[in-house]
């Protein structure tokens, strides 16, 4: 029988993978992908709690799913802006390696 804890554990491990990616990788694009993994781990636990809180007429709690909808929208906007910043940075410095972008001033 699959319990709530199993879904939360999968979500926690996925978050840790994204967290490790942000800390270990030096390529800015991979760091953005790892951020997406962390956001989606949060989405998974929200949906699991939504399915767990069944109300009196036998429907899941749709408030959490509306939250997930908002998170997906904001994440898509964030990715678009982040990738545009990476392109602008690449034009200026010809690199996406964070270890070579250590100065605020070009």
């Amino acid at each position: 029988m699959i319990t709530l804890g199993d879904y939360l554990m999968v979500s926690g491990i996925l978050f840790a993978i994204g967290f490790a990616g942000v800390m270990l990788r030096r390529n800015l694009i991979i760091i953005l992908m790892s951020l997406e993994l962390m956001l989606n781990a949060a989405n998974l636990s929200l949906v699991a709690f939504s399915r767990f809180r069944v109300n009196s007429i036998g429907l899941p709690d749709y408030n959490a799913q509306v939250f997930v909808f908002f998170i997906i929208t904001v994440a898509a906007a964030e990715i678009a802006v982040g990738l545009a910043i990476i392109v602008a940075l690449y034009r200026a410095r010809q690199t996406t390696d964070v270890s070579q972008i250590s100065q605020l001033k070009f």
Binding site: M1, I2, T3, L4, G5, L8, M9, G12, I13, F15, A16, R51, F52, V54, G58, L59, P60
Partner: peptide
């Protein structure tokens, strides 16, 4: 996260039917 989930009582429950 694992220690928190293993101490959480409701996390051991299966999902209620819809």
């Amino acid at each position: 996260i694992f220690s928190v989930i293993s101490h959480l009582k409701i996390a051991q429950n299966p999902f209620p039917p819809l």
